[in-house]
């Protein structure tokens, strides 16, 4: 961050940094590849509606460390499937708040934006990634439906693209993401992503704020409505806690109580 930036909440799960006309929101759990917890998404939701963020003219959403976000913290979900319901519900709130936000939002998805981390991108106005980044929704193999992300995806890409991305549980490269509309700008290197996103946000910050806000408002009205988001959330929540979902998530940790094996997140 530049010398002129003001950082708030060093130890927070999502850091807010004010940098000139920009507000940078950084997922801040780098040792867990920014795996999302309910508290983290709630903090992000609060920040998206906070006066100190809304007084900025453009927002950058990024992640500290090696990747943007590896998805929900599956260790929490494994311990208690109610965490999954909470994560899905707050995720919907975050995506809707990003869409409703009058300021333009640029997401810097370097390295990986997987599952819940990929779903967050669907709230952004511009998505920057890198060639080798991994994106997608590898969650149906865990008995989890990515339905929750569909209304957001339909605002970014063709319906067929959204179908492909949510039914095929494979991950795609940043280059493929840019081809299909899941991302807009593809950098050669992961370290170029946050600087590029920041430059794009600075460019957007120079536009008249009222025109940008009016345009975002119109696009939000033309896109998926509240009913669509609620229907999608219900479709995903409907499977939480089923025998199939519990067994598939439990299989991530083959040893009972095994503390050292298994991923922290879907990636």
């Amino acid at each position: 961050m530049s010398d002129h930036s003001q950082s708030m909440g060093e130890g927070e799960l999502v850091r807010l940094v004010r940098q000139g006309p920009l507000a940078l929101l950084a997922l801040n759990r780098p040792d867990k590849r920014n795996a999302l917890t309910p508290e983290m998404l709630e903090r992000l939701l609060t920040l998206l509606e906070a006066p100190e963020v809304l007084e900025a003219r453009a927002i950058v959403l990024c992640g500290e460390g090696g990747v943007f976000c590896s998805g929900f913290d599956m260790r929490l979900v494994h311990a208690d499937s109610r965490a999954l319901s909470k994560l899905l519900t707050v995720l919907t709130g975050v995506v809707r708040a990003m869409r409703a936000c009058p300021r333009p939002i640029v997401a810097a998805a370097h390295g990986a934006a997987v599952a819940g981390g990929c779903a967050v991108l669907a709230g952004a106005d511009v998505v920057v990634t890198d060639r080798a980044a991994k994106l997608g929704y590898p969650v149906t193999r865990l008995g989890i439906s990515p339905a929750v992300t569909v209304p957001g995806l339909l605002g970014m890409m063709s319906a067929g693209g959204a179908r492909e991305r949510t039914l095929d549980s494979g991950l795609i490269s940043g280059e493929e993401a840019a081809r299909t509309g899941l991302a807009h700008v593809c950098c050669d290197q992961p370290e170029d992503v946050i600087p590029k996103a920041t430059r794009l946000a600075q460019h957007l910050a120079e536009k008249p704020g009222s025109a940008v806000a009016a345009m975002k408002g119109l696009l939000a009205r033309l896109g998926s409505g509240q009913e669509d988001f609620e229907l999608a959330l219900r479709a995903s929540l409907g499977l939480v806690g089923s025998g199939d979902q519990l067994a598939r998530v439990a299989a991530l940790w083959p040893m009972p109580g095994g503390e050292r094996s298994g991923p922290q997140a879907i990636s």
């Binding site: 193999r141 008995g143 439906s145 039914l167």
Partner: peptide, 25 residues
């Protein structure tokens, strides 16, 4: 691709496809 899909959860794939069909007309 077929092996990957077969290994996926039938419930999750069906729920997702149903929602896609509803939302995309």
């Amino acid at each position: 691709l077929l092996a990957q899909l077969v290994a996926g959860s039938a419930d999750a794939l069906r729920a997702t496809k149903g929602l896609l069909n509803t939302l995309d007309g």
